[in-house]
């Protein structure tokens, strides 16, 4: 794990996602794949074995048609700040939480491919490279030069566009700004969202949109009861959407009031 540096003013990067504005178009998924050189699906890949650092899930209120109402929820690594489950179980120390940014990072070079972290992640936000990364002939030329493709046999996940963070740090250095200050940048999904449902910023900065949105009553986090202190704040005015985020046990099982 990266050691904390007392001279660095730590950022706590996070997001706010307005579920009521998400149209489920998938632009965030495509922009993420383009930015991070995530390969197209292998012919045998399915929704369980594919690679999608961010995935938009369609959820509904569970009522029969025509009372059914649905919503789209983009889910990526929630960047747990407390007892990060994937970091705890990794035997290779391939997962770390950067104290300077709060971002949970994955180092594919260290990854053994044991997939303990996939099993430990409560948000299903980690993906395994079942196949060699392959692009159609010639398409390698169109890869993002700032991100190295990962090899078969390792786990990968959202890192809040680490390449863009690096570029922002370089730009800040070129502009003569101190290296200890957090930098401002936007991940690909937030930039691509047509409805502006996704906003990114420093949760330690009270003026940032995510920090402000986090305090609103409509805000919620996924599986808050696990106390993992995630950095993705969702928003919705619909009660049933907020309820689903806490994954309640189905009614009638007798477990409705139990924790976990």
């Amino acid at each position: 794990m990266i050691g904390p540096n007392k001279n660095v003013k730590a950022a706590r990067y996070g997001m706010t996602i307005d579920v009521d504005r998400c149209s489920g178009c998938g632009a965030c998924m495509v922009a993420c794949a383009v930015e991070n050189n995530v390969p197209p699906a292998h012919a045998n890949a399915t929704d369980r074995t594919g690679l999608t650092w961010i995935r938009v899930y369609k959820i509904d209120n569970g009522l029969p048609y025509p009372e059914t109402r649905s919503a789209y929820v983009p889910v990526m690594c929630q960047h747990c700040g407390n007892e990060t489950p994937c970091a705890h179980v990794c035997p290779q120390q391939a997962v770390d939480v950067d104290p300077a940014t709060g971002v949970v990072g994955e180092m594919p070079q260290r990854c053994l491919g044991c997939r303990y972290c996939i099993a430990a992640c409560p948000y299903h936000a980690r993906y395994f490279n079942w196949w060699d990364p392959a692009w159609p002939a010639g398409m390698e030329k169109a890869l993002n030069p700032d991100v190295t493709p990962r090899m078969r046999g390792v786990v990968e996940k959202c890192n809040f566009c680490h390449g863009r963070w690096h570029a922002a740090k370089q730009q800040a250095a070129a502009d003569g700004k101190p290296d200890t200050e957090p930098v401002s940048y936007t991940p690909a999904c937030a930039e691509a969202c047509p409805t502006k449902a996704i906003h990114f910023g420093d949760l330690n900065d009270p003026a940032s949109l995510p920090a402000q949105a986090a305090k609103q009553g409509e805000s919620f986090r996924m599986l808050e009861k696990l106390n993992t202190d995630t950095k993705i704040y969702y928003r919705s005015k619909r009660d049933w959407v907020r309820r689903i985020a806490d994954a309640p046990h189905p009614a009638g099982t007798g477990k409705e009031n139990q924790r976990g």
Partner: peptide, 24 residues
């Protein structure tokens, strides 16, 4: 479309793939 659109049609079920239909 782009080969990367498998993210929407194959690697998730966000959109209906060309060889699929949906039924109640």
């Amino acid at each position: 479309g782009s080969p990367i659109l498998t993210k929407l049609y194959q690697e998730s079920n966000l959109r209906l793939a060309a060889n699929r239909i949906a039924l109640h």
